[in-house]
Design a protein around this nucleic acid. Sequence first.
DNA 1: ATAAACTATTCAAAGCTTTGAATATCAACA
DNA 2: TGTTGATATTCAAAGCTTTGAATAGTTTAT
Lengths: 361, 361
Amino acid sequence: MPQSKSGHVTLSDVANATGYSVSTVSIILSGAPLSANVAASTRETIRAAAKRLGYHPDARARSLRKQRSGTIGVLAYDLSDPYCMPVVQGVQHGLQATDYLPLVMDAQTERKVFDKSLRLMLERRVEGVVVIASWMFDETSLLADIKKNGVPTLVVGRDLTPSGITSYLLDNEQGGRLAMEHLLQLGHKKIAVIRGPDGMFDSAPRWKGMLRALQQTSVTLAEQLTPQLPLLNTPGEAFEAGRSLVKHMLKSRRRFTAILAFDDLTALGVVRGLHEAGKSVPDDCSVVGFDDVLPARVATPAITTVHQPMRQMGLKAIEHMLTLVEKPGAVQELASLCLSTPELVERASTAVAAKKRALLV
Amino acid sequence: MPQSKSGHVTLSDVANATGYSVSTVSIILSGAPLSANVAASTRETIRAAAKRLGYHPDARARSLRKQRSGTIGVLAYDLSDPYCMPVVQGVQHGLQATDYLPLVMDAQTERKVFDKSLRLMLERRVEGVVVIASWMFDETSLLADIKKNGVPTLVVGRDLTPSGITSYLLDNEQGGRLAMEHLLQLGHKKIAVIRGPDGMFDSAPRWKGMLRALQQTSVTLAEQLTPQLPLLNTPGEAFEAGRSLVKHMLKSRRRFTAILAFDDLTALGVVRGLHEAGKSVPDDCSVVGFDDVLPARVATPAITTVHQPMRQMGLKAIEHMLTLVEKPGAVQELASLCLSTPELVERASTAVAAKKRALLV
DNA sequence: ATAAACTATTCAAAGCTTTGAATATCAACA
DNA sequence: TGTTGATATTCAAAGCTTTGAATAGTTTAT
């Protein structure tokens, strides 16, 4: 049916079918201002023909001509990480009412894929880029290209203000403090901490917050009980790491009545490791996670954790982005840092310390 | 720096900077066959200039001219459902070595969003569409448009061969059989089943498979112990449904020593419900899930479940798709049905039936 | 009757690339 | 000298849409 080479129905097909010119058809089907002038009968004829033929405008041609792609790139470091999707959902939500379309890409924790995705976004002329937390970002030279091309960029999940990029992230330090304070309030004195890997941005501030919470107390942390996660690639690996680290700690024969894990998956691994060693949570040992992702909510006992408002962060970021793309060519304002407030959500994996039964293997 | 109106560096910018014509620049930067003819020095000059200026080809213009978008649409019914991402990963994996790009969109279980996404894909001239399981699909009239425009379509997660669409899905009936047989082998006689909602494709075959497994045995299912899930929108809802249904069943005072849940999230809800009623898994009651998603693996006890090879299904689907897009205009072959084989993965949520302690509330 | 003001529609250029055909240059060959 | 054949580069059209300006045609005001 369509005559054009592409196999797709074009304006020219509709024009031929109705006897009107391509311009007229375009004006009507795109709802241009000029369409106020066209006769109602014409409008009907053309609309009907378009529908009958199955016309769908070519987004590439339109976007080329209009000099606006109507697209905002969203690049996640790993979409399969339960942390990412809520952020993306926030973005999607914020874009719903607009006529921007999120182009979501997944770096799959691979540097090469990350760079390629960024390049492809640039080529598709996204009007803005939202990057979800990635260590990969600092070294990439594409960053320079993005700036050179005047595409506004935002990052959520880590602080890149030193590189001049407005950043949305959790107040990790306060989160760490909250988690530790919770355990202290429950009367725990022998506390183990599984710290985040050095290569990850969140690690240091969370740790710092925990130490700060201890400052006014007499509680100290034993070095054997503060191991560090290696740099991981998948959520599954964090689980395994938590599981094996807790087993090592049990072997160390240092008492502890509570464990503070770097994130929820690690915490779930800890629960598993404890269980395998015959310890029960929270009776023998309390466990606290971080982030509040789905697996932590649906596990039994549900994991007490520090909630990170990922959806909200995505939403706030995209709202900011919308203001940026609406004023094209404006001087990129100073990079700002937007901290979200963490919230402790108490669930079933923590309990009052049973003083007499402090865990001793 | 760039002179063109768009604010992006164009071929013409590079041409001006080097003194060569736009054609020459294009030939070199796009690696066209003709580039064999150009002088090495020219090549260098132009490449250098392109890099210096930060040139990135405009994908829209290129794709318009080449009549190929190099894009394959992937439409998931809900990206935040742990079922979807593995399929998407399989697709991504299969596309890695090609120069096709997946355009992944998320319908967020909303019919309106689903239709809009499909429309946008059409407008962006995707060369193929892979839809991940959706009840929304059958009624949409866009299906007709997609066909009219000759875009090959595949679905994974449900059987749409009656509508002429090649489908990739699990052999649900065998999956149901496997799950039930597992419980029978463990000696369970009083078995409860939480059936899937009517509106969901998988429900019937899984149920049928379970019944078939019972056929050669003397075990029967009590009607009060085979409730049905309502149609749900989010993974969280399935969890809550499982939790509340199991509580109802406990109230019914019918004995059961095992529960077969429609999917993993429901199973996790069941575990929670049992736990809240003071029952332990698997000692008092075994629980079997379905799908094998991340939360089921990292929960403790880990959920015994029927593994659905989602990654592999995504991979197989996209490989098929690649053959379809390579022969444009070919007559769409007959729709075929590709069933994947389920596998039971035994974990810690099931155990031998403790005959004497059949669960009685 | 004529200018002015609408109304309804079309022209033609532009947005950025790609590419078949064309041009220009130069060497070699008969 | 004129032909052939490379080699290196450019012309110009096309892909589909949008849009400022232009063209007819009709009505209103003067």
